[in-house]
Amino acid sequence: MERKLGFIFDHNKCIICNACVDACNKAYGNLNWRSLIVMPYGESKTALSIACNHCDNPTCMQVCPANAIEKNEMGIVRIRDDKCIGCGFCTWACPYEALKFNNEGIMTKCNFCYARLAEGKGIPYCVEACPTGALAFGWIEKGEAEVDYLPPSEITKPRIVIKQPEIKESLKSKCFTY
């Protein structure tokens, strides 16, 4: 399996400070590309920091009629904003709610801070802001996201590694809307 860039999240290290979300929003204009989902865990709580998973099978890219989404050799799935027609079909196909419209009617999403990485200016803002190392990134062989609180990973094969809490206890979200 070829190594591609992916996020790595460790539930055991997250202190739910929201720094990852704030850094992303500050850098890209409050588009909420990243979410921090807080879940009850035993008598305490834990959280998952998640944005676009730069999936191995990016259904958003496959369904886009305008060829506005591309995946590069590093595994980063990006939207070309000059090509997007704003149909929103990609939001139908992505089960992770990763795509968000901007004010100009163009779809946007996490681009892994590609410009920073490519120009050697730094690492993704969210990873840089995480004070505990709960959110990291790296060249990963395959995603490990088989958790019961996320959509089935066979749909898009997300390239994210989730390290579950060490004490095995089922994670349950407080509520859901269906």
């Binding site: 890219m61 496959q62 369904v63 886009c64 009629p65 305008a66 060829n67 506005a68 090509k83 997007c84 027609i85 704003g86 149909c87 929103g88 079909f89 419209f101 100009e104 009617g105 163009i106």
Partner: peptide, 25 residues
């Protein structure tokens, strides 16, 4: 009208290779 950028609507058929929306149109 479903597309927010109707000025670029001509691009809707640019992904015949994988997009069924392109093929439908």
């Amino acid at each position: 009208n479903h597309a927010r950028r109707t000025d670029r609507f001509y691009r809707v058929i640019y992904n015949l290779k994988t997009s069924w929306l392109s093929r439908e149109v």
